[in-house]
Computed example of a mutant assay.
Amino acid sequence: MTDYLDTPEGRRIAYNRTPGKGPGVVFLGGFKSDMEGTKAIALEEWAKREGRAFLRLDYSGHGVSGGAFEDGAIGDWFEDARDTIMALTEGPQILVGSSMGGWISLLMAREHPERVAGLVTIAAAPDFTEDGYWASFDKETRHKLESEGSVAVPSEYGEPYVITRRLINEGRTRLVLRTPLSLPFPTRFLQGTADDAVSTETAIRLLDHAEGDDMRLTLVKGADHRFSTPECLALIETALAEVIERL
Rank of each mutant, 00 (worst) to 15 (best):
P126A: 13
P113W: 02
L167D: 04
S98W: 01
E201A: 14
E201Q: 14
H225T: 04
W134Q: 10
G212A: 00
A123E: 04
S136K: 13
M1A: 14
P126D: 12
F31L: 12
D6S: 14
D196G: 12
E50K: 13
A73C: 13
M108G: 02
R49S: 15
F54A: 10
L106D: 08
V96L: 05
P126E: 10
E159K: 10
E148I: 05
P19A: 13
W103L: 09
D127S: 12
A73N: 13
R115T: 10
Y59G: 03
L206C: 08
L219D: 00
A81N: 04
P126T: 12
M215H: 05
T121C: 11
V162P: 01
E156C: 02
T238Q: 15
A125E: 02
A68L: 06
E44P: 03
D138S: 05
K39P: 14
E170P: 06
A241N: 03
R172I: 02
D76A: 03
F31Y: 14
A194E: 06
T187D: 07
R172S: 04
I244S: 01
E114H: 03
I85A: 05
V220T: 11
V26H: 02
P184Q: 12
A135I: 00
L190T: 15
G101P: 01
D34I: 00
L43T: 00
D71W: 14
L183T: 10
N169M: 07
G97M: 13
L43W: 08
